[in-house]
Nucleic acid binder design. Structure first.
Lengths: 219, 219
DNA sequence: ATGTTCTATGAATGTTTGTTCACTGTCAAG
DNA sequence: CTTGACAGTGAACAAACATTCATAGAACAT
């Protein structure tokens, strides 16, 4: 499998995030607006590249119609992880499905803050039929650095309803972010664990993907 | 929640099945062709009705873009079911998620054979983020009558790779069917367990949703 | 130096697709 | 008998959308 360029990966990630959040694919113009292209043809070329490299299938002539190759989903079958499940039982997972990368930075401010812009939805479209209860994500960015979650680390995400103080994976504007959840009364904020970033980020409509339960440090 | 008419239910089911199988929504004209309407407006009216009744959300102006209300998913929380899991352990599930109805008949021949045409994809779009490993389906139709699976029964479906002779839930042409899987060499057939129906149904591209593991009889 | 690939702009085209309007028939309630 | 909700035909429109063509700068290997 030919490797993807940074922009191709970012576009693919955005598309996956859009599907996860909205349940339908973005149009070419949606992608164009997201990445601030001046021409739809820029997007078109990237989509062609994604299809040529075998990670995306376009349906000719149809609007907002794509498929994603299931094979793009890697896994952590080689890695043995002790995984703290709900309750007190510790499960030893030898094959936590690995479902992509995730940015810990602010999606829309990434370019000016030096955080890697690439992010990935936790559930690729081709593999969402019967996803596991828990999954692993690769962290990109440094906004969780104060929580000792750094670029390159792997985070185990478990579905569930998060409490105040939990580190959550949340979908905001089609992008997945990793942040600490702050509840103040009825208001919900996301807090980046990096002193260089603004502390509280008010969230109107956020979709919690899951709760970060364990971090596997990069070596 | 206002009740849906038969046709509305069928259209909603077809849309869900289409998303499950193709990963993108059907266009109005796709639905029109499926139900042999002479006018797109027939579909349009039904979609309006589905939205008015709160089970479907349309995105105005956008093509192939819909959302499904998560609340439409009922459950079996009241029912306690002993569920035979993989291996020999028997699990007592008190809340198997209930994900819709399924026809046991032939999707395209239903009108002439008296089988209820309504079917439903096992994973509604609004609830597919983190579906459970096992789920329950309501059986519609009588094509599995010889296997003592009748209209109104509930079947517990478990994901997995089926063997020859297993009763499976399979997606064919956007519709979910419940049939026995027959493997003859490299060829795969689906067999309806009803002497009134043609015995073997050759399948070119079928998507196995899961294997029927247990039947909860209707009372 | 030079061709090639990648990435992008800008404009144009033609199809797909949602949406609207006018009209008809059916069926049950008042 | 009438009214109104429901389901459908048929035609037409306008916006959304994918796609194509012409062009060009940057990076990079030959």
């Amino acid at each position: 499998m030919e490797a993807l360029t940074k922009k191709q990966q970012a576009i693919l990630d955005y598309m996956k995030g859009h599907v996860s959040q909205h349940s339908y694919w973005p149009s070419i113009r949606d992608i164009q607006a997201k990445f601030r292209f001046a021409s739809t043809n820029a997007v078109f070329g990237h989509l062609q590249a994604l299809e040529r490299k075998g990670v995306l299938q376009r349906i000719p002539g149809a609007a907002r119609a794509y498929k994603i190759a299931p094979e793009v989903v890697p896994d952590l079958s080689e890695t043995v992880i002790t995984y703290e499940g709900p309750g007190e039982n510790v499960i030893e997972l030898d094959a936590v499905p690995f479902l992509g990368s995730i940015p810990a930075g602010f999606p829309d401010y990434t370019e000016s803050s030096g955080v890697v812009a690439s992010m990935q939805a936790p559930l690729p479209a081709g593999a969402r039929r019967r996803p596991p209860q828990a999954f692993a994500l690769l962290v990109r960015g440094d906004s969780m650095i104060a929580a000792d979650i750094n670029d390159g680390d792997t985070v185990i995400i478990e579905p569930g309803t998060p409490k105040h103080g939990d580190i959550v994976a949340a979908l905001i504007d089609g992008e997945t972010t990793l942040k600490r959840l702050i509840k103040q009364g009825s208001k919900v904020y996301l807090k980046a664990e990096n002193p260089n970033y603004p502390n509280l980020m008010p969230v109107s409509s956020l979709v919690i993907q899951g709760i970060a339960k364990q971090v596997v440090k990069a070596i």
